[in-house]
Design a protein around this nucleic acid. Structure first.
Lengths: 189, 189
DNA sequence: AAACAAAACTAACAATTGTTAGTTTGATAC
DNA sequence: GTATCAAACTAACAATTGTTAGTTTTGTTT
């Protein structure tokens, strides 16, 4: 076992509860009950409720930031880049669907420093996405629809994957990727 | 002024706050401050915090239910039906973007009866949507991608319109509809 | 079996929560 | 000017919140 093992168990349990009811509606006593211990015992492992939230969200946001930077700086064409973004979202969703609920719905409850850090990463992510689409449009690799609408509709689908995928267990991950790419990109390319 | 005018002002203010922080994180004192009065004074107009939430959500859910029923029972072809669904979402979003935040993120905080009622309406809405896509597929009016993925990606875009549209004031509502239809449907049709 | 650390516990706190009861204000109708 | 009524107020409540301090239990290493 790693030294952080118990802490990670708490964070995982918290992510599930946050997904079901949202950060504010989950009490430390709720979390403790889910762990089978008393609320005060949680504090042997974590510093605060806030620390749990920021651990969940910032880690995921950094994953997206790193993934997006690799894609932007690659020399592939626009369609391939968009496919890689879809890939990135599916991969992260498969690995941590619960945590993505917090990232999507509870980021505003981060405290000052982490809130700013998060908003900066999200802004840069969206800017990178937009740039890819814009350049694709200039090169004629993409149909001339409104850029904002293309970015928005694609991103909103990818962002809500976490809600949907865990229920679709029969769909293979590779089939998901293929059809998702078709549905999201063939209307655009 | 209508007799419910003051109550409606409170509900509108609440919808804005719920959108920003979520139902659980908004206190009655927050809401009172936004209205420029004391928390206790709110209860001259409303019965409970819960009543505010259910008024916002159930009203919108019923709007969607009525709209969808009209579309399903019409004799238009599949693509036209899907266009009408996009229309419906854009119309409701333009009229009540704030309330849609609660419908999307805070429905689980409805109390027992309204929660069941809401979940039933949402289930039927999704079933109707799926049926339209399935029949379109059988008639060959739609490309043969995975039905669930098509339904999911379209619906998740439409459901998050509320997040995005209020910031895009320069885009005309008719242009939005046209491009949204293009992006969402041309990849599918 | 003695020592140690990890992880649980009990008890309590100060602050905040939704809500109530009863009272005062201010405008409109007579 | 007095009665009326909606809509504000003050004061308080019981419950719940995140968190702390100090103590006991548990399991492993010597």
């Amino acid at each position: 076992m790693r030294p952080e093992s118990r802490k990670q168990e708490i964070i995982n349990a918290a992510a599930i509860l946050f997904k079901e009811k949202g950060y504010s509606a989950v009490t430390m006593r709720d979390l403790a009950k889910a762990m089978g211990i008393k609320a005060a015992s949680l504090y042997n492992h974590i510093q605060s409720k806030q620390e749990i939230l920021s651990t969940i969200i910032i880690g995921l946001a950094e994953e997206f930031t790193i993934g997006m930077n690799k894609i932007v700086n690659s020399d592939e064409n626009t369609i391939q880049k968009l496919e890689n973004i879809i890939d990135l979202h599916i991969d992260v969703t498969l690995r941590n669907a619960d945590g993505l609920a917090s990232l999507n719905n509870d980021w505003m409850h981060l405290e000052e420093n982490n809130l700013q850090y998060f908003e900066k990463m999200r802004q840069e992510y969206e800017d990178n996405f937009r740039d890819i689409v814009k350049k694709g449009l200039e090169k004629g690799e993409i149909k001339p629809y409104n850029v904002e609408i293309m970015v928005f509709s694609t991103l909103s689908t990818l962002r809500t994957l976490y809600l949907w995928y865990p229920e679709q267990k029969e769909i293979d991950s590779d089939i998901l990727k293929r059809d998702m790419i078709s549905v999201l990109l063939k209307g655009v390319a």
